[in-house]
Simulated scan of single mutants.
Amino acid sequence: MPLSACIIAFNEADRIGDCIASLAFCDEVVVVDSHSTDATVAIATSMGARVLQRPFDGFRSQKQFAIEQAAHDWVLCLDADERVSDVLRTSIEAARATGFDGAAGYRFARLSEYFGKFLRHGNAYPDRVLRLFDRRRGGWRGQREVHEAASVDGAVRTLAGDLIHHPYRSLEQQLLKTQRYARMMAEHDHARGKRATLAKLVLSPAWRFWRGYLLRGGFLDGWHGLVYAYVRANYVRQKAVMLWLLQNGQPVTTPER
């Protein structure tokens, strides 16, 4: 069963090589690049990937475009900061050997590295994602361009092994990234008539922290788990504040002069 790997990227010269190397078992690798200014394209091309350029207009749209360009109907979708572990590769190849056995898609756990340690508890893990699927029966659907998720019509099965994730180069990058995501989500919710309430402003961040850090055992990851839980709670706070401002007619970005 032929399999295409699809990656979206922008200025990922330090990570794209490891990502593509982990996909050596796929029949092709398609990289959709958003006009990187570093060596991302050169590295991907040198490793045999087919690189396409497309202006970025949203994570979901970019990923849907990528699978539409694939040569094969079964696709494996990764971000440039992800790579397939050896155990997951074995699981994928076993499913592939059966012709994917009537399933429409497969999900698997994502294991995130956080400042030198892999997080195995709390809200960070297992973080199962649907990334291997038959594009004829699904894809990156819906209207939300951030926190996008693939969906399929048909049976979804779970594979053993982890998708290794290296999401942040620094705390500064994480804070900037979560702020951007919070704004995009607030704008998405506002456009669809959702409202922020005083309860959401006050209680939702606290609940996100205590659910992940205590109820789901985030404290077992030591100080890494504490910092992760705190930053994620702050994301919830930022999203609620931005939605509150939008519904009260206030901008959340600096107006152009």
Results as ranks from 00 to 15, higher is better:
R144D: 05
A240V: 08
R169V: 00
L23D: 03
Y228W: 11
E12H: 06
V87T: 09
Q62M: 12
F118P: 03
F59S: 05
W210M: 07
S61H: 11
A206E: 04
G142Q: 14
V75E: 05
C77A: 13
L111K: 09
G222D: 12
R136G: 03
A240S: 13
A80H: 03
W223D: 04
G139M: 09
I7T: 07
A49T: 09
R237N: 11
R141F: 09
T253V: 15
A70M: 08
V152I: 03
D57K: 11
S22I: 00
I8T: 15
A160V: 08
A150D: 06
A160F: 03
T253S: 15
R141S: 12
P55C: 05
R169K: 11
F115I: 05
V202W: 07
W207M: 14
Q64E: 15
A240W: 08
Y181Q: 02
G102K: 13
E148K: 13
D127A: 07
S170N: 01
N11P: 11
V202N: 03
R208S: 13
I92T: 02
V252Q: 07
V32F: 08
G138A: 10
W244S: 14
V31S: 07
F108M: 08
Q179L: 04
R216T: 04
H166Q: 05
A240I: 04
M184Q: 15
I7A: 06
A95R: 10
F219P: 06
Q173E: 01
S151G: 13
F65C: 08
E113T: 04
G139C: 13
R120W: 10
K239H: 15
V252H: 07
E12S: 08
R15I: 07
V152D: 01
Y213H: 10
G161V: 06
I16G: 02
R195W: 12
P251A: 11
S91N: 08
Y106A: 03
Q64V: 05
Y235C: 02
A186H: 01
A70K: 05
A80G: 04
D127H: 10
G249K: 06
R157T: 02
D162Y: 01
R96I: 03
D73N: 09
H190K: 06
Y181W: 14
I92Y: 10
K117H: 10
V87D: 10
D57T: 10
